[in-house]
């Protein structure tokens, strides 16, 4: 196999890894925000992302709305849904000492959304095919599909948008403060429900963007959500819990790991290796690989 190994091929593997990885990264940023203030792993995140992929699919097939154009509907809808989830499901549980209750609600929500998607959209995979789905750029002999490039751009822009919000606005600063010490934040006059709502809204908002990215790039089915949530969780662990920029980098690292290991060791091994590295990181670098935090 190694005689086929050229510079161009390695470059292609790296590019594939990065293109895949930013999708994990953007999902991981959502998990990171929710974990920050709520102290739970929002396991339903993957199912929500797939749900928005189906919404994008429906808007395209039924109403002929371009997937990228659908963002102007999907983003507000997902922000609203995120706030709704918090107000309807998590608000009471968030005040409890035992975070397992919130975690169980997230698990229940994950399966509920998954089952509802099975009822509405059935189990067979769906994908979106537009006029630009087949467009592939070939700089330096590497294949870069147009839709994956756009997904990358969306992920990077969202990550910087969230970072800007967290660093430059007062409410964003309040979210960071609450992520570090909720009780001390309330002594500053910060309402815990308000920062939780903001974290949920933005987290699910990113899920909406990721859903559109997913729908344009891959085929998906209702069961894909759980795998996606686990991948995002791994990206989160790589980047360090609660570190927004680290989450994006962690996603890219995960994408690279999958791309390289499935080529060099074998596709069957890629996931096993990923989970092995996940455990190693949690055991020896529980603070994440990139140090510091945001």
């Amino acid at each position: 196999m190694l005689e086929y190994l050229t510079f161009g091929l390695v470059l292609q593997l790296l590019v594939n890894g990065i293109l895949f990885g930013t999708m994990y990264g953007i999902a991981a940023i959502g998990l990171s925000l929710i974990y920050g203030t709520m102290r739970i792993i929002f396991l339903a995140h993957g199912a929500i992302i797939v749900f928005f992929a189906y919404i994008c699919y429906w808007l395209f097939t039924l109403l002929h709305i371009d997937p990228y154009l659908s963002l102007i509907l999907v983003i507000p809808a997902s922000l609203l849904l995120g706030s709704g989830f918090y107000a309807g499901l998590f608000k009471e549980a968030a005040a409890l000492e035992d975070k397992n209750i919130s975690l169980l609600i997230a698990v229940g929500l994950m399966y509920l959304v998954e089952q509802l998607m099975l009822v509405v959209w059935k189990a067979n995979p769906r994908s979106i095919s537009t006029i630009y789905t087949a467009i592939v750029f070939r700089p330096l002999g590497i294949n870069i599909p147009f839709t994956r490039l756009i997904a990358l751009v969306m992920a990077v822009l969202s990550a910087f948008g969230v970072l800007f919000f967290l660093k430059k606005t007062l409410i964003g600063t309040a979210v960071r403060a609450a992520s570090e010490d909720m009780e001390s934040a309330t002594l500053m006059g910060i309402n815990p429900h308000w920062v939780n709502v903001v974290a949920f809204a933005i987290g699910i908002g990113l899920g909406g963007i990721a859903g559109v990215g997913l729908a344009t790039v891959y085929s998906f089915d209702p069961g894909y959500g759980f795998i996606f949530a686990i991948k995002a969780l791994i990206a989160l662990a790589f980047g360090g819990m609660g570190n927004v920029f680290g989450a994006l980098l962690g996603g890219i690292l995960l994408g690279l790991l999958e791309s390289l290991s499935s080529f060099f060791i074998g596709a069957g091994w890629a996931d096993a290796i990923t989970y092995g590295v996940f455990l190693l990181v949690l055991t020896f670098r529980p603070q994440g690989l990139f140090g510091g935090s945001t």
Partner: peptide
């Protein structure tokens, strides 16, 4: 214990 936001 002051409870500052040490990362901020």
């Amino acid at each position: 214990g002051r409870r500052l936001f040490s990362q901020l």
